[in-house]
C-alpha cells in the first residue's frame, strides 16, 4: 500500500501504488527478466518537494518514466491529482513538467528560443502568450543573451537550463526532475539546486519529485525522501527523521593509503557495519558503532600493519549511512540488471 502522509486537502499530487515494471531482455535460453520496479509505492501531497534517493539502477528513472506515461508498468496504479495517468493520459501530461536526465533531449541544431517555441506549441501555447512565457523563462534562467544561439555551442549546464525552461513552459503543477544536476559542474549544480528549492518550490509552490543519487542534494532540498533500492521503496521520511534512524550511533571514518582487509574489523566488538570505498588509491572506511572511542585503538591496531593511515574522524550519520544501514547498498553502487 502507498503511505498516506499528506497534510494538504484534495487528492495527492502523485500517488503510486504497488507499481511493478519488468524488462524482458534477450531471447530463448538467454532470456532474462529484470525487475526494475518491484511494488513501488509512494504518495506526494501537493506543494511538497519529494526526493527519490537511490543508487544507479535502483528504479528511479523507471518510476519517473512510468509517471510521465513513457513506460507502461506491468501492474500497479499511478494517479496524478486523482487522475489515472494511463486512462487520462493527456490531462496528466498537461500537468507534468518533465526534466529527463542526459543532455540529448533537445535539438542541438536549433537555438534555445526555437527549441522552446517548438515545445510550447506541443503544450498548447501560441502567439504572444507563448513569446512572453519564453522570454520570462529565458530571463529567469539567465539565458536571454544566448537565446538565439544554437544549443550545440552551449555548455552542459546551459543545456540543462534550457531543459528546465522547457519543463516549465506550460506552468505545470508537478515537476518530475530526473537527476537534474547529473554531470554538471559545481557552479551550475548549485544554481539548479537553488532554483528548484527557492523559485520552483518555495515561490511558485510547485510539487516536485526529484530523483538523485547525490545524498547532499536530497538532504539539502527535499521535504521528504524515499529510499529506493532494487525497485522497492524501502522507507519514506524527512531527512531529519532518517538521520534519527540510526539512534545513538557514531560513524568512525578512517582514510588510508591502499586497500586494507576489512574482515577483522567486522568482528570487532561493537562494530555494526563496515563500508569501504576505494578511489584513486585511497580507501575511506566508514564504521557504524554506538561509541567510536571504545574501539578506536583496536581499529588502528588492525589497520596500521596493512596500510598507511591518513586520517581518522568521528562523524554524525549522514543520509548515505542511513541508506547503507537500511539497505546494505551504497548510493554509489550500480544495482542494474537485477535478475528475477
Amino acid at each position: 500500500m502507498a503511505d498516506s502522509t499528506h497534510p494538504n486537502p484534495g487528492p495527492p499530487a502523485l500517488l503510486c501504488d504497488n507499481v511493478v515494471k519488468l524488462f524482458r531482455r534477450g531471447r530463448g535460453l538467454k532470456k532474462k527478466v529484470v525487475r526494475a520496479l518491484d511494488g513501488a509505492s509512494l504518495t506526494i501531497p501537493q506543494g511538497e518537494l519529494f526526493g527519490l534517493l537511490g543508487p544507479n539502477g535502483a528504479g528511479k528513472t523507471t518510476l519517473v518514466r512510468c509517471i510521465a506515461t513513457l513506460l507502461i508498468p506491468d501492474s500497479g496504479t499511478i494517479r496524478l491529482f486523482g487522475h489515472d495517468v494511463f486512462t487520462d493520459s493527456l490531462f496528466c501530461r498537461q500537468r507534468i513538467g518533465l526534466l529527463t536526465s542526459g543532455e540529448r533531449t533537445l535539438y542541438w541544431k536549433l537555438s534555445a528560443r526555437d527549441n522552446l517555441r517548438f515545445f510550447a506549441a506541443l503544450y498548447g501555447l501560441h502567439g504572444r502568450d507563448r513569446d512572453r512565457r519564453i522570454d520570462y523563462l529565458l530571463e529567469l534562467l539567465g539565458l536571454r543573451e544566448v537565446a538565439n544561439e544554437r544549443l550545440e555551442r552551449y555548455s552542459s549546464g546551459m543545456k540543462q537550463k534550457v531543459s528546465l525552461a522547457r519543463a516549465l513552459l506550460h506552468d505545470p503543477d508537478i515537476l518530475l526532475l530526473d537527476e537534474p544536476t547529473l554531470g554538471l559542474d559545481p557552479q551550475f549544480g548549485r544554481f539548479i539546486r537553488q532554483f528548484i528549492k527557492e523559485e520552483l518550490n518555495r515561490k511558485q509552490g510547485k510539487t516536485i519529485l526529484l530523483t538523485t543519487h547525490y545524498m547532499d542534494e536530497a538532504d539539502e532540498l527535499c521535504d521528504r525522501i524515499a529510499f529506493i533500492n532494487r525497485g522497492k521503496i524501502v522507507a519514506t521520511r524527512t531527512p531529519a527523521e532518517f538521520k534519527r534512524e540510526i539512534p545513538h550511533k557514531e560513524i568512525l571514518e578512517v582514510r588510508c593509503l591502499g586497500q586494507p582487509d576489512t574482515t577483522g574489523l567486522k568482528h570487532l566488538d561493537g562494530i555494526e557495519q563496515v563500508q569501504a570505498d576505494f578511489r584513486d588509491g585511497i580507501t575511506t572506511l566508514r564504521l557504524v558503532m554506538p561509541k567510536a572511542e571504545k574501539v578506536l585503538s583496536e581499529v588502528i591496531e588492525l589497520l596500521r600493519p596493512q596500510v598507511r593511515l591518513l586520517g581518522i574522524d568521528v562523524k554524525e550519520p549522514t543520509l548515505e549511512d542511513v541508506f547503507i544501514y537500511m539497505t546494505g547498498t551504497s548510493l554509489g553502487a550500480d544495482t542494474k540488471e537485477e535478475i528475477q
Binding site: L70, I96, G102, L106, Y107, L122, Y123, H170
Partner: peptide
C-alpha cells in the same frame, strides 16, 4: 537526436 521521449511526453 534523443528527443522522441520529450516529444511523446507532451500532451498531444
Amino acid at each position: 537526436y534523443g528527443t522522441l521521449e520529450s516529444v511523446f511526453a507532451a500532451p498531444v
